[in-house]
């Protein structure tokens, strides 16, 4: 049976027992990322799909993962790279299929080909002149690895029509991601460029508990402050707004192939699942570097995060 046929079969036979988001008794692998994802909530809020969208930290170990025939990982570069570097090939008798965000295709070793497929989303297009634009931002150092804060705001300035009313969701806390990192300097920079580029006639929303109650409608749009999120590839807000037919200003045009599986997640947006075709070039480069530098690859280790960040800034990683 082909990979996609197998996935189709799993999805059509799915039930709540094999969907992590429906469980109340999750045995987390560690407390660190549980807290991190809690701090960047509602970006990491749960939603429903039979593909089982979840995070690596929600599985204690491979034995735990084996209980689920399909796991759609919402993880991003930091935790995914560590996972594949520490597990360059699947363990024996591991039949679970992992769905990985298509943007990290090159991070997947060839040896995992039989256990991995890719996912991407088709979201509604934004109107040319939206009345309101909601900018979703995590003003943390993990949003500005490829681009600086200034570059991100320059891009935003080009993207958002001048006439649109701007709302910025920018939750502010010193320890907004990892407890040992003071993110206040990043936040301060964001505020400086926000005021410089867009002036004071903007709404700034900071309350995590209230943000989901802010209403947008069909003639409005949303976009991300930064196209990078090194901690979460699958942003809940994208689903929240797409399911209300609110278009994404920065939606990439998806070119699905006929072979792809497509599932509607709402009346207005879909998920596409495709086979892995890449050779894992980024993984190969990363593996080589970590061996040469004798890097201790731990997703919780700040040195590892700094190592990844430097590699990206120097252009040594193709992502």
């Amino acid at each position: 049976m082909s990979m996609l046929s197998e996935i189709k079969n799993i999805i059509s036979n799915s039930h709540d027992e094999v969907i992590m988001a429906k469980k109340w008794n999750i045995h987390y692998r560690d407390n660190l990322y549980k807290e991190v994802y809690g701090r960047i909530w509602p970006t990491t809020h749960r939603y429903y799909f039979e593909g089982n969208p979840s995070f690596l930290t929600e599985y204690k170990n491979f034995t735990d993962m084996k209980r689920f025939p399909l796991i759609m990982l919402r993880d991003s570069f930091v935790t995914l790279s560590a996972f594949f570097l520490n597990n360059p090939k699947p363990p024996e008798n591991f039949n679970t299929i992992l769905l990985i965000a298509k943007e990290w295709e090159q991070l997947i070793p060839k040896t995992w080909k039989s256990n991995v497929a890719l996912y991407s989303f088709q979201r509604p297009q934004a109107p040319k002149k939206p009345k309101k634009v909601m900018v979703l931002g995590l003003a943390t150092s993990y949003s500005f690895w490829r681009h600086t804060v200034e570059q991100a705001f320059n891009n935003l300035e080009k993207l958002i029509p001048k006439e649109s009313k701007k709302m910025f969701y920018l939750p502010m806390r010193e320890r907004s991601v990892f407890g040992h990192i003071d993110e206040a300097p990043v936040y301060a920079k964001c505020m400086r460029f926000l005021l410089q580029k867009f002036g004071a006639d903007v709404d700034i929303l900071t309350n995590n508990n209230e943000i989901l109650n802010v209403k947008l409608s069909k003639g409005d749009a949303y976009c991300d402050l930064s196209s990078e999120n090194m901690l979460c590839s699958d942003n809940y807000f994208h689903h929240h707004y797409s399911s209300q037919n609110v278009g994404a200003l920065d939606a990439k045009n998806l070119e699905p192939s006929e072979e792809d599986l497509a599932y509607p997640l709402s009346l207005y947006h879909n998920i596409h699942i495709s086979e892995l075709k890449s050779q894992g070039e980024t993984f190969a480069g990363l593996l080589y570097k970590t061996k040469i530098l004798k890097m201790n690859v731990k997703d919780w280790d700040p040195k590892y995060h700094d190592f990844l960040k430097e590699m990206i800034k120097r252009g040594e990683l193709k992502i």
Binding site: A21, Y47, Y48, Y236, H239, S243, P264, S266
Partner: peptide, 16 residues
């Protein structure tokens, strides 16, 4: 309680 998209997906399962 249901998650975002849950009732939609369950309705879609009926349609399929």
């Amino acid at each position: 309680n249901q998650l975002l998209g849950e009732y939609f997906r369950k309705t879609n399962q009926i349609l399929e």
